[in-house]
């Protein structure tokens, strides 16, 4: 019984969202707002159950005095909602921004910049002409695309020609991304149709 009620609710809410395809309407707006409320409430409940309770509250109860520091900083974050004293929220904001900037610095440096430059140092004398051509294209493609993104020099003459080649590589990659995006969107539609006609109406 709860499964039938659940599937019916899910089916009706699916149709409510799909109704936007005809035009914007009351049912869609209701469902949209309901979703935002559900999602926001879901996030808060999960933060409580998965972070505040095990990582903060349980440790405070166990006598971990140092955990008062993140508690104090977390409380300060909420001064942002007060009419005055909002500047106090910059303390935890500063801490968070600093931590993520530090991690991003290392991540982008080691994970992207060094590793990707290293991976593009390729041989064009491998013994296989197909691999040689492909490697050559990879080297040229990366360099010309980087030239296109280099705006400190005017794109004229040789630089202009290289940057033009870079645009062609970029266009091919945008085309590939478009093709993959279509694939993603179709998959999501297939998923919903499978639910509507299979799980809900049992027609499939």
């Amino acid at each position: 019984m709860p499964e039938l009620v659940g599937n019916t609710l899910a089916g009706l809410l699916t149709l409510a969202i799909f109704s936007f395809l005809y035009k914007d309407n009351v049912v869609y707006k209701f469902a949209e707002h309901l979703f935002v409320g559900l999602a926001a409430g879901y996030y808060v409940a999960f933060q409580y159950r998965t972070v505040f309770q095990p990582n903060l509250w349980d440790r405070l109860v166990a006598g971990d005095i140092v955990s008062f520091i993140p508690l104090a900083l977390a409380i300060l974050l909420f001064t942002r909602m007060l009419p005055s004293g909002q500047w106090l929220s910059r303390w935890p904001m500063g801490a968070m921004i600093g931590a993520y900037a530090g991690l991003q610095l290392i991540g982008f440096l080691q994970g992207d910049l060094i590793a990707q430059v290293q991976a593009n140092i390729l041989s064009v004398n491998t013994g296989s002409w197909v691999t040689n051509v492909n490697n050559f294209l990879l080297i040229v493609g990366v360099l010309t695309t980087l030239v296109y993104f280099f705006f400190s020099t005017e794109h004229k003459g040789a630089v202009g020609a290289l940057s033009k080649a870079g645009i062609y590589f970029l266009m091919i990659s945008f085309g590939a991304s478009y093709g993959f995006t279509v694939m993603a969107r179709m998959s999501l539609l297939i998923g919903r149709l499978e639910f509507l006609f299979g799980d809900w109406l049992h027609l499939l």
Binding site: Q104, V117, V142, A176
Partner: peptide, 23 residues
């Protein structure tokens, strides 16, 4: 594997330089 990868790699390198500078 070739033209798409080349352009995406250049974007990764460019974005990494920007992110490193900002961080």
């Amino acid at each position: 594997d070739i033209p798409n990868l080349a352009a995406k790699r250049a974007i990764l390198i460019g974005a990494a330089l920007g992110a490193i500078a900002t961080s």
